[in-house]
Amino acid sequence: MPHYVLFALIVVAGTGGELCVSRAMQVAGEVPSFRPADIAKVIARAMRVPWMWLGLGMMAAAFFALLGALSIYNVSFVVPVTALSYVAGALGGVTFLRERVSSHRWLGVLLVAIGVTLVFLGQN
């Protein structure tokens, strides 16, 4: 398996998983208090939302891809590259959720992309 597939999985499945879990939590509703009984009730409600299972599956896939990448590359290389999820998040927000991303935010995303490129170039 080509190694860049691992990085693509970490970024895409990780970001997608978070989006699905947020969607599920919106359906499940707010936590009324931090009492264990209330938290358990919200979790039980969230587990009945299919988005939650899709999200958890994607996050698990991202986690195992992270383990795979860490078995090959240094952690000081792998973790900075996963910052690409900020780029994926902005692009996904614009294309899938039709969010409006401010120019300020694009600047941050651009800086992250430049930083990841430098990390790649600095991989002797």
């Binding site: 430049i114 930083g115 430098l118 990390v119 170039l121 600095g122």
Partner: peptide, 9 residues
């Protein structure tokens, strides 16, 4: 170069 990249990130 990697430190520089991390700082930019």
């Amino acid at each position: 170069l990697r430190w520089a990249g991390i700082a930019v990130i």
